[in-house]
Amino acid sequence: MSSFSDKLKKLKEGLNRTKDKIVTQISESISGKAIIDEDVLEEIEEILISSDVNYEIVEKIIEKARVKLRETKERSKVNLIEIIKKEFEEILQNYKVESEIIKFNDFKPYVILVVGVNGAGKTTTIAKLANIYKNKGFKVLIGSGDTFRAAANEQLEIWGGRVGVQIVNKKQGSDPSAVAFETLSIAKKENVDVVIIDTAGRLHTKHNLMEELGKIKRVLGKVLQHAPNDVFLVVDGNTGQNALVQAREFSKFTQLTGLIITKLDGTAKGGMVFSVCSELNIPIKYVGVGEGIDDLLEFNPNEFVQALFG
């Protein structure tokens, strides 16, 4: 088990790539020129867009920065980074939420459905989530609802073994709703605290598969009125503007309650989170920063922006 500061270090290392890119480039832009002119603003635009921040958001923020620059005579001394940083912080601050863990005692079992496109990292994330909950003393049960992909069951079984959590499996090709049903039934019988339901990766454009998700959700609600308490969308941190489309579509069918952004350890980005948060009002719950079981960190808006802009 790594300590919290280790984890923080890891997050920062990952985000530092973004930070390095944005901050050093912005700083260079500013220090290199006495007056912040259109060229500098364009450079900032490039840096932000290259980090996958949505074009509209970049435009808005640059426009605000431009207005603020006009208000001051000493343009060279305006701390542009501060202006931009504040704007980004504001976007994330509006969507701060409390951890789901504090609600575990109010619902028994607490049920979390995990959805996402193919290859986003759902199964690995579920193992990490289970590990966090288990370490806090909760009894966790995972339903292996990915009955489509070859060897998805085996993958989850191996993770279950590593974390020490029971998995409910059905044969490949069986109805995922049946897995969800059975998992909840077992959870009720065996006094489980938290149930996590895995689902097969699906592209948000596949109507039938999205309907299937809706069905899984309904089945959960039939067994337990409060279920699912949460629906988490797992998004690959490498994703560009499509993340917003994904979130929008998945939300239509499952009413998402949180986002988990994975693979943030390797890329210099994450900028698309701003549009997802602001347009859809969905908070970011966790970020994945590595392949180890402890490499899932609770999302902290302040830290995120802090790390982003130094």
Binding site: I49, D52, N238, T239, N242
Partner: peptide, 28 residues
């Protein structure tokens, strides 16, 4: 992954520098 954002060029570049690939496959 065809849904990849701006960073696609960076990973492609890095892989190319290491293993010098001959072609690209766009998925999803």
């Amino acid at each position: 992954d065809s849904m990849t954002g701006q960073d696609a060029v960076n990973s492609a570049k890095a892989f190319h520098e290491s293993v010098e690939f001959d072609g690209i496959v766009l998925t999803k």
